[in-house]
Structure formats: structure tokens, C-alpha cells
């Protein structure tokens, strides 16, 4: 009996070692590109373009950061643009999705199901396909080459998921809770605010998170809908860093740019990944 148990333990340990080895090796592969970026940004600009490249920096330097900060009109302009577009997208998406989600879940009207389906429709048509006519619509609204116009396009693309998540969030709160608040003397608005909205906060976080990731990272729409240097967002700026100088690319500076665009997403993801994963599942499986 003990021999049998010892054998079972040995098998179990072998399996565990194999599992850890497998996962660790795969993690190295997945993290390798990011680790290399992290190594390169702190090299001197000369070392960053050395051929063959060095694995570890020989000398620490923040000159790449300084260079990027002075690129074009200055990094603060482009970062500012990205922050403005993202903030505007998040705020508009959260407001529109919360209002519509509440209306559809708690105060249904004639045809509200059809309206719900119509609000989900943009999910079926990716923004990439619509860019040509969107360009003309924005032109007519005097929103072409504007950060507000771009934020409107991103908001439109986020409304389906936003309304879907918020409607479900409000629908899962029993009506009795709000009604109890009315009886206690709250007005309709106060009741909605203090009771339902608080309970729907996780949904709200999911919606805001998705709006942020999309608007911060998006490239093609920004490339097409913005056409003056002072309006570029960070992903478009990176494109210009490559094409701006004939043939030579300042690799160190470019990697700093990559770091600046990805780091906020990585940090936000690591802190709020629960909401992110929930949103992904809501946007795909459950819809």
C-alpha cells in the first residue's frame, strides 16, 4: 500500500514539474518581446541602434526618453491628444450607456426591444469597414480632423457592449430595492442614483475600461480621420516617427514610444483585470 502511494506521489510530482516547466517556458516566450522593449528603452541611443544588438544595456541612459519628448511638436501634445480622446470617449460612453441601459431595463416602453437590437447593431459592423462614409459624415458635421469627432466614432463603437452590459446590470437589481427607497421618501432620480447606480458599479467599470482600451490603442481610424500634426494621437505619432526620416529609424526612441502607449494599458489591466475579462465574456459569449 505504501509502495503504491509512493509511486502515486512520484507521478504527481513529475506532472507538477512538467506543468511548471511548460508554463514558465511559455511565459518567457510571451514576455520576451516586452522584456526586450524594457531593456532597450534604457540603453543609450547609440547602443539602441547597435548591430548586432546587445541583450542587456551596457550603460543606463534616459536619452531615448528625452529624444521622444522633443519629437515633432513635443510628446506632451500627442499624449495630451490621446488622453483627451480617451477621456471623452470614456465619459460619453459611460453616460450614454448608463442612461440607455437604465431606460431599457427599468422603464421599458413600446418598441424598447427593437431599440435595444438597433443599439447592438454596430457590434456586427467593425469601424474599419465604415471609415469612408464616417469621414464624410464628420466632414458635414464640421468634426473632421477633430479629436471630438474621433471620440464620437470610438463612442459609437463602444455603445453596443456598453448598453448590453449596463442593461443587464440594472435588470439584475430587483425593482423592490428602488421602490423601497421611494417609499422612504427618495425621489425617482435620487432612488436611481443612490441605489441602482451604486449596485451597477462593476458593470460601469467594465464599460469604462473597454472604452479606454479601444480609444487609447486604436490606430486606423485615427490615421484616417486626423490629418494635422497637432491632432495626432500617440499611435499615429509612432507611425510618423518611422516614416518621417528617410530610411533611418531611431529604434531607441520608437521603443520608448511603444512603452508609453502600452504601459498604461498593462497597469490598468493588471489592477482591473476582473472587469476586463467579464466584459470580454459579455461581449462575446453571452450576447
Amino acid at each position: 500500500m505504501t509502495r503504491f502511494r509512493r509511486r502515486r506521489d512520484r507521478i504527481r510530482r513529475t506532472v507538477a514539474i512538467a506543468w511548471w516547466t511548460c508554463c514558465l517556458v511559455l511565459s518567457c516566450v510571451f514576455l520576451f518581446p516586452l522584456a526586450m522593449v524594457a531593456m532597450t528603452v534604457v540603453k543609450t541611443p547609440a547602443e539602441a541602434v547597435a548591430s548586432p544588438p546587445t541583450y542587456l544595456p551596457r550603460q543606463l541612459s534616459f536619452d531615448n526618453f528625452k529624444e521622444l519628448w522633443q519629437a515633432g511638436l513635443g510628446m506632451d501634445t500627442y499624449l495630451g491628444n490621446s488622453i483627451k480622446v480617451s477621456l471623452l470617449t470614456v465619459v460619453m460612453t459611460v453616460i450614454l450607456a448608463t442612461l440607455a441601459g437604465y431606460g431599457l431595463a427599468k422603464l421599458p416602453f413600446k418598441g424598447s426591444n427593437a431599440v435595444f437590437m438597433a443599439l447592438l447593431a454596430p457590434m456586427m459592423v467593425p469601424v474599419q469597414v465604415l471609415l469612408t462614409p464616417l469621414y464624410l459624415v464628420l466632414l458635414r458635421l464640421h468634426l473632421s480632423n477633430s479629436l471630438v469627432g474621433l471620440a464620437c466614432v470610438y463612442t459609437m463603437s463602444q455603445i453596443p457592449l456598453g448598453v448590453f452590459v449596463m442593461r443587464n446590470a440594472f435588470a439584475s437589481i430587483p425593482n423592490e430595492i428602488e421602490e423601497a427607497a421611494w417609499i422612504d421618501g427618495c425621489s425617482l432620480v435620487r432612488a436611481a442614483q443612490s441605489v441602482s447606480l451604486r449596485l451597477a458599479t462593476p458593470g460601469l467599470a467594465t464599460v469604462a475600461l473597454f472604452a479606454f482600451f479601444t480609444s487609447w490603442n486604436e490606430f486606423l481610424a485615427a490615421l484616417i480621420l486626423l490629418n494635422s500634426d497637432d491632432h495626432y494621437t500617440v499611435p499615429v505619432l509612432l507611425q510618423n516617427l518611422i516614416t518621417g526620416r528617410f530610411g533611418t529609424i531611431d529604434w531607441g526612441m520608437l521603443q520608448v514610444g511603444v512603452l508609453v502607449t502600452s504601459l498604461p494599458c498593462i497597469i490598468v489591466f493588471l489592477i482591473l483585470q476582473r472587469y476586463y475579462v467579464e466584459g470580454l465574456l459579455a461581449g462575446s459569449v453571452k450576447s
Binding site: L96, P108, P133, V137, T155, M156, V163, L188
Partner: peptide, 30 residues
């Protein structure tokens, strides 16, 4: 209550109308 529901939903509907359905129809026309 029904009217309030409609009013709350309207902004999102207008938004999707202007930035989704209008371009979609425009695209067909173009």
C-alpha cells in the same frame, strides 16, 4: 415612466443613428 424610459434611451439612439446608421446608408449610396 414609459416617457422617461424613452427619453433616457434617446441620446444613445441619436448617437448610433448619426455615427452608425447614417454612414451605413451613405456607404450603400456611395
Amino acid at each position: 415612466r414609459r416617457l422617461v424610459g424613452l427619453a433616457l434611451t434617446l441620446p444613445a439612439v441619436v448617437f448610433v443613428g448619426v455615427f452608425f446608421f447614417a454612414p451605413l446608408v451613405t456607404m450603400g449610396w456611395m
